[in-house]
Design a protein around this nucleic acid. Structure first.
Length: 221
DNA sequence: CCAGACGTTGTT
DNA sequence: GTCTGG
DNA sequence: CCAGACGTTGTT
DNA sequence: GTCTGG
């Protein structure tokens, strides 16, 4: 991971499931094929209120001079020290709802088989970071996010060696808590996460192209 | 001091 | 091969 | 993440 | 913006 995932529920469904009391976005089109640079829902906390908003997937560091430098993933192993992420890790954490994600297995013959990976029931909450960026050329403001990755769970490591961090519900409050503004606290929260059991199944290579986007991407063979 | 990097994935 | 676009 | 482009001049 | 390398 994590270069493709699903956000196909309605805004209200995500808001309810993740306990957002404030909705600060228009509804996005449900997507079975969320790709980097797409708009995605994310949850943050502000003054004790949990809100759901919209972010551009692909974090542009605040110091970046152009919008080409985007970071779709951040490795959990180094997230507290990398200049692109450490400030966001301490103070701008978010949750990114996902109904599941895709991974491509590289076969010995160099072909690629896509899989859909999900929890056994319900959506998952990717651990994410966000930041604001101002385009020096146009003064446009963009709010971007990235998905934190970790070593793959044994259940799926035959497919792929990395996967997104998905946080269990008991840690959502702590992860989003804007009073916790220390990297070591954030690391402790991630350490405490007990990963959910995952299931996977092969899906059609239709998913390879972002032009395809619908339930047919999940068809089984 | 200034210049240049600042990231991940996978592949070789 | 490498970059851009989605 | 994968797919698709990767270019210019001039003309419609 | 901030850190590292030279």
């Amino acid at each position: 991971m994590c270069g493709r995932f699903i956000q196909a529920l309605e805004l209200d469904d995500y808001a309810n499931f993740f306990g957002a009391t404030v909705i600060r976005t228009e509804a996005l089109k449900p997507s079975y094929n969320v790709a980097p640079t797409d708009q995605v829902y994310g949850l943050v906390e502000n003054e004790g209120e949990r809100m759901i908003g919209t972010f551009t997937w692909g974090l542009i560091p605040h110091y970046s001079k152009d919008r080409k430098t985007i970071h779709i993933n951040a490795r959990v192993e180094t997230i507290d020290s990398k200049p692109a992420f450490r400030d966001s890790f301490a103070r701008r954490r978010c949750l990114i709802p996902a109904d599941g994600f895709y991974e491509w297995e590289r076969r010995p013959d160099d072909t690629k088989q896509p899989y859909f990976i999900s929890r056994e029931s319900g959506p998952m909450a990717f651990a994410g970071l966000w930041t604001r960026w101002r385009d020096p050329a146009t003064d446009e403001r963009v709010v971007t996010c990235t998905v934190i990755t970790t070593k793959a769970d044994p259940a799926i490591e035959a497919i792929h060696d990395r996967m997104p961090v998905s946080l269990n519900q008991d840690l959502w409050d702590d992860w989003l808590d804007s009073n916790q503004r220390e990297a070591d606290v954030a690391l402790q929260i991630l350490d405490a996460n007990d990963p959910a059991r995952l299931q996977f199944r092969p899906v059609p290579t239709l998913v390879n192209s972002v032009r395809n986007n619908g339930p047919e991407l999940l068809a089984s063979y």
